[in-house]
Amino acid sequence: MFEARLTQSAILKKVLDAVKDLLSEATFECSDSGIQVQAMDNAHVSLVSLNLRSDGFDKYRCDRNLSMGMSISCMSKILRCAGAEDTVTLRAWDSPESIVFIFESPNKDKLAEYEMKLINMDQEHLGIPETSYSCVVKMPSAEFTRICRDLSQFGESITFACTKEGIKFSASGDYGSANIKLAQTADADNEEEAIIVNMQEPVKLTFSCRYLNCFVKAGPLCNQVQLSMSDDVPLVCEYKIGDIGHIRYYLAPKIDD
């Protein structure tokens, strides 16, 4: 049997909001250590890696490893049915054909169950090695969201240029050009507002706005986002999910023709 309960269904709602624009379906790998998802978008340009640790759940039981193919749009519709304060429980039996979502109101006077059919999926799993990156930048997620939105008006892609002083985002197109420079914050008193640059080598990379604007949908999960970059390798854009895990987006860079 598989059963995972979260007191705050809002966390799962936010996770779904953070992936539904990129993925139509995904395999949820459930084991004793937690729930993991790795899935590429249809164009193989970006990849979502979601990790929810079993110890972050209020209750977690997984008697045997399960791979459950789920429709993200259907799951998202079901989670929209949960009240903001509801507890959510995911439940499936061994060799399941469906998964049940159970929403319970805080005073336990309302119990709603939604059963979703699982889907058979061919899965392509990429091996992503642990890498040390030339630049790792931590910045407020709301600022990153705003920069991606603002610069998307000027072009289809945004160039990230990182030095030890800070990070510069720039875009150009038919209307003109724009660039935004963020300096590393001198004092780290306010962790949520801090901009921290960890640089080994300066980096300059160009990424598609369309995908960046999907990644920033994870902003409500965490006040800070971490961008890991090395020249000519995919960007890693990471948001922590409270004490329970993280969501990482990988995005292949654009290169000059």
Binding site: L126, S208, P234, A252, K254, I255, D256
Partner: peptide
């Protein structure tokens, strides 16, 4: 115009 790379250019299927 820069061209978009494929993620499979960077990571192997396992």
């Amino acid at each position: 115009t820069p061209i978009q790379n494929d993620l499979k250019e960077f990571y192997a299927l396992v």
